[in-house]
Design a protein around this nucleic acid. Structure first.
Length: 431
RNA sequence: GGCGGCGUAGCCAAGUGGUUAAGGCGGAGGUCUGCAAAACCUCUACUCCGCGGUUCGAAUCCGCGCGCCGCCUCCA
């Protein structure tokens, strides 16, 4: 049984899909007016892991994530750059897709754009106007929060509190300063669509609702993002933590770092934390690499008892509101057990059993989105191979001076050579 | 000011009423090794910000205090 924290009730509740095994997830996507930053990356990875885990548990997940491709900032920046809002948005949509792919985030099943769903939004706004929850004024349409008592419940605030300290821009036409625009009448030079209230464009909040309803029906299982899940966002020096920061790091290291903190907790950006994660990742990587030869020689047998306790631990952790730190702890313990088995040799643990254990590790790690690209191991260039062979020969002669020179030379070519009982081991050195 | 969250080892971080308080990084010692690296083994919080209280029993619940932080601005 999976238990998940529900923002509305502020408790963990049993997850009961509305139409099992189908599960609908809707995630509020980005407003594409700039590159992704580390905050987007975390949010995306968290949902990615939730999606992967639900799939692992046998659910058929439909994952929808929208693009908000019309908004004040997009229009403003597009105008500054002398391009159309559409062209401007498309550019950042492409960038966002590339960033997410680089992070190992699975692509959504559907990624609708706001601009392609204006008719649905108009229809939804029309319904809200008809039901008295919204009112048009001078080409704008506002949502009247007083007509919707639960407003604010999600964030745990009441209406008066919202008004108290806030400096809300006064717009005399609005019935209440806190009412927000569902439809914005067009100003000159802005993209516009025809509507019963005149030409204009959708305001915030409405697009998610419209697209979610279209693709997942009126009710669905998950709604993630800034609105329904109060995800903490690290304040991290965002200026420095944009796309370049993301690209500078190993995506698996970033993921390991992020999953080391529970998703509902705040996390502070730190270069050092990511480097620590990269070191931890090495333990996995080395084990996996050492296992490749064994895997070629033996096929997996049934999982031996020594490696069987980790999956239940992993699942127990993930079932409990996606407790990735606990799940990772189980994985690290599995790594240790496997490394120990490797060191003890094939007498203590038959190759087939070892391979079964490694497969188990890989399977579970992939549920967290780790090692998705299979570590992309490129072989060393012939020159390096030649030097390594020469070094082996020097060592058999016990010519350690020459041996160390060769090691330095190999290092200059970007490879780390280590001596193991089974012979030299080559590792490409990071940038 | 209002609302919400947090304070666990040197650092990061789980655990939220009851066996020896996960895991990672770092550190110490050991095994292995020509050296090194890696790996493995052992150790590294008798204690969970402070003070009271509830309880047979609390890091976990309640109150107060101290210290951080987020939100209340179209940043998802």
């Amino acid at each position: 049984m999976i238990r998940i924290y529900n923002t509305m009730t502020r408790t963990k509740e049993e997850f009961v899909p509305l139409a099992a095994p189908a599960v609908g997830m809707y995630v509020c996507g980005v407003t594409v007016y700039d590159h992704s930053h580390i905050g987007h990356a975390r949010s995306a990875m968290v949902f990615d892991v939730i999606r992967r885990y639900l799939t692992f548990k046998g659910y058929r997940v439909t994952f929808v994530k929208n693009y908000t491709d019309v908004d004040d900032r997009i229009i403003k920046r597009a105008n500054q750059g002398g391009v159309s809002a559409r062209e401007f948005a498309e550019r950042f949509i492409a960038a966002e897709r590339a960033d997410m792919a680089a992070l190992g985030v699975l692509a959504p099943d559907l990624d609708p754009k706001a601009t392609e769903h204006v008719p649905q939004m108009i229809e939804l706004i029309g319904r809200l106007v008809a039901s008295g929850h919204a009112y048009p004024i001078d080409g704008d349409v506002y949502f009247e929060i007083r007509r919707f008592p639960p407003y604010g419940r999600l964030s745990g605030k009441n209406l008066d509190e919202l008004l108290a300290g806030a400096r809300v821009e006064v717009d005399e036409r609005k019935r209440d300063p806190r009412d927000f625009a569902l439809w914005k009448g067009a100003k000159p030079g802005e993209p516009a669509w025809d509507s019963p209230w005149g030409p204009g464009r959708p305001g915030w909040h409405i697009e998610c609702s419209a697209m979610a309803m279209k693709y997942l029906g009126e009710s669905f299982d998950f709604h993630g993002g800034g609105e329904d899940l109060i995800f903490p966002h690290h304040e991290c020096e965002i200026a420095q933590a944009e796309a370049c920061t993301i690209k500078r790091h190993d995506p698996d290291a970033l993921r390991l770092w992020m999953l080391g903190t529970h998703y509902r907790n705040m996390i502070e950006w730190s270069e050092e934390r990511v480097e620590e994660a990269a070191r931890a990742l090495d333990r996995f990587a080395r084990l996996l690499r050492d296992a490749t030869a064994v895997r070629r020689a033996a096929t997996a047998a049934a999982l031996p008892p020594a490696f069987a306790e980790f999956r239940p631990r992993f699942e127990r952790a993930m079932d409990d509101d996606f407790n990735t730190p606990q799940a990772l702890a189980a994985l690290f313990d599995l790594v240790r057990a496997l490394a120990d088995a490797r060191d003890r040799g094939p007498t203590a643990t038959p190759p087939s059993a070892f391979v079964a254990g490694v497969d188990e590790l890989v399977q579970l790690a992939r549920v967290l989105g780790l090692f998705g690209r299979g570590a992309a191991a490129e072989g060393p260039p012939a020159e390096v191979e030649r030097l390594v062979a020469a070094r082996v020969e020097a060592r058999t002669r016990r010519d350690f001076k020459r041996s160390d020179e060769l090691r330095d030379e190999i290092a200059r070519l970007g490879w780390l050579v280590e001596d193991t009982p089974a012979g030299p081991r080559l590792t490409p050195k990071g940038p």
